[in-house]
């Protein structure tokens, strides 16, 4: 007997309950006792603690990325349907986000984050356009620095975020009158930045009229942990 003064029968029963060995009716009857019997409930917790290290005998296996995608889509809404099933509502939402972010594009004197969570080099293959990006997870700020290249006359460069297999979301048109800017990502967009793509497309002045890229993708880079 132990300090808890539970009879051996109950201690074994609690162990069987934790192991999942009780028949369904026995398990139900046992569970019903737990609410009114703290010593018995404590015994169940003790078995759970004692057995938990055995789980270490099952080798850890990295689950495929689709499990996280499915889980977060289920809990936080489907942002990850395929390209073709996304309709106008999404484009409208993307446009709304772009408009919401637009003022940030013109904030003055941004400085690069001290301790960015992610960085990306957004570069054209032929070197005609290059930007560096750094994301500060604490503030949600995405800092961008143009290192080379400018839009063709009468055209604009628009920045896009593409997470996983979701549709591109516009982060706004890149200003041409300064080299550094900082924009605050909508909280919805902050969740899935690791491995996400930042891309710049060629668009009419003022940006894509559809909320999705309409012109050529000029440069792209992947956000990787800094």
């Amino acid at each position: 007997m132990s300090a808890t003064d539970l009879p051996d029968d109950d201690r074994a029963l609690a162990g069987e309950y934790v192991l999942g060995l009780l028949a369904p009716d026995e398990a139900r009857a046992f569970a019903a006792r737990l609410a009114d019997d703290p010593a018995l409930a404590a015994e169940v917790a003790r078995w759970q603690e004692d057995f938990a290290p055995l789980a270490g005998e099952a080798a850890p296996v990295m689950p495929p990325a689709r499990v996280w995608r499915a889980t977060s889509a289920r809990l936080f809404g489907a942002r990850r349907r395929g390209w073709l099933t996304w309709g106008l509502p999404l484009a409208a939402a993307a446009l709304a986000i772009a408009l919401m972010l637009a003022p940030d594009l013109f904030s003055r004197g941004p400085t690069a984050p001290v301790d960015p969570a992610f960085r990306a080099e957004i570069a054209a293959e032929d070197g005609s356009l290059a930007l560096a990006a750094a994301y500060d997870a604490d503030t949600g700020a995405l800092y961008l620095e143009r290192r080379g290249g400018s839009p063709a006359p009468g055209r604009a460069h628009e920045l896009w975020l593409i997470s996983g297999d979701a549709l591109p979301v516009s982060l706004g048109v890149l200003p041409t009158d300064r080299t550094a800017l900082s924009l605050t990502l909508d909280p919805e967009l902050r969740r899935d930045l690791e491995g996400a793509t930042l891309a710049v497309s060629d668009e009419p002045l003022g940006g894509s009229p559809t909320g999705l890229p309409t012109g050529a993708v000029l440069a792209a880079g992947t956000l990787t942990p800094a």
């Binding site: 789980a55 270490g56 099952a58 080798a59 850890p60 296996v61 990295m62 689950p63 495929p64 689709r66 499990v67 996280w68 499915a70 889980t71 289920r74 809990l75």
Partner: peptide, 28 residues
Amino acid sequence: TSAKLFGLCLRILNDRAEAEDALQEVFV
């Protein structure tokens, strides 16, 4: 924690697709 929990689901279920579904349910 997902690798540890996925390993455990896989061990118990011994079926990859089912373990993936299980892991999703577990995190929900």
